[in-house]
Structures are given as C-alpha cells and as structure tokens.
C-alpha cells in the first residue's frame, strides 16, 4: 500500500511541476509497421499543422469497420473543408495482419494505415479496446479521445475537427 502512495505522490508532484505545460499530450514514440512491413516510428505522425485523427481498429472488429466505412463516405468532404488526415492503426496480429491491406484496398479507403502487430502503440496510449479514436491538433497534441462507436458518432467527431481547423480549443 505504501508503495502505491509513493507512486501517486510522484505523479502528483510531477503534474504540479509541469502544470504549465501546453494542453494535451504528445504522441508517444513507438515502432509499428506500414502495410509493406516497413518500420515506422509513431513520433513521425503529423499533418503539417492541420488536425489529425488516429483511429485504432481491427479487421475482426465490426463497429470499427462500420465507423471507418461510414467516415470513408464523408472523407473527401472532410479533407476539402478542414485538411484533416485519418491515420488508421490496425491491431491485427499474425492471424489477420495479411488481411489488412486487401481489406483496406477492397473497401477503397484513402486512410494512412499502419499495423500495430503486438499492441505496443495501443498499450502506450492506454487503449482498452477497439475502436478507440484520438484527435490530434495542429501542434501534434492529443486533445480528445473516444472509446467505442455508435452510428452517428462521426458527426460529433467532425464538429471537433472543424473547431480545431478553425484554431479554436476543444474541451
């Protein structure tokens, strides 16, 4: 029990000394791969000062595919209006990772897709289960996150993207 208190104490002190930091947290640096199997470090994820959506999904996750397919219909408009970029992180492991590219191409998605085969990026970001969405502002800070998907969630997400694109802060 004492050790838990020490840990919590350490966290509190650190948050006091860094309370003045800018809002939101940066994207952790984790090694994942692109659909060709080339290594990619997540600290390089960026969208040139425009908002970015990081979405965790899997080929075996129905709500994940519903979400990304629904957004795919709107994506061209979203890009035109806000310059937003969607990065889709598949957590498919060795059982299904070879199905990721054929699925992505088969559905004609235009997202930037990576594979987090052993859930290292998922773990660093504290994701419990998929789908899980992070919203990153133009400074590369994670400013919002959401777990699960219900039909229509994309409208709320896009309202937030528009705010970020207009330079407004979101809570």
């Amino acid at each position: 029990m004492r050790s838990i208190i020490v840990v919590i104490g350490a966290l509190l002190i650190s948050s006091i000394s860094f309370g003045q930091e800018s809002k939101g947290s940066t994207i952790p640096a984790v090694e994942i791969v692109n659909m060709d199997g080339d290594k990619f470090n997540t600290s390089q994820l960026n969208n040139d000062g425009k908002p970015m959506i990081i979405n965790f999904w899997a080929t075996w996750c129905s709500p994940c595919k519903r979400e990304l397919n629904n957004i795919a219909e709107l994506y061209d408009d979203w890009i035109d209006e806000t310059g937003v970029k969607i990065v889709a992180i598949s957590i498919d492991d060795a059982r299904n990772m070879q199905k990721v590219r054929p699925y992505v191409d088969g559905q004609a998605w235009d997202y930037e897709v990576y594979i987090d085969m052993n859930a290292d990026f998922k773990r660093q970001l504290g994701v419990n289960n998929v789908p899980h969405t992070f919203l990153v502002d133009g400074n590369g800070k994670i400013v919002w996150q959401h777990n699960s998907y219900s039909e229509g969630d994309e409208y709320e997400l896009y309202e937030l993207v528009k705010k970020l694109a207009a330079g407004e802060s979101i809570k």
Binding site: R2, S3, I4, V6, V7, G9, A10, L11, I13, S14, S17, F18
Partner: peptide, 17 residues
C-alpha cells in the same frame, strides 16, 4: 520492485523542478 520503480518516477518528477 514497485518501490524501486516508484523511486525512479519520483526522481524524474523532482528533477523537473
């Protein structure tokens, strides 16, 4: 182990200030 880790975290946290 937990105490050792807690100390490391504490050290990093204090070093910030």
């Amino acid at each position: 182990h937990v105490q050792a880790l807690a100390l490391i975290i504490l050290t990093v946290a204090l070093s910030n200030s």
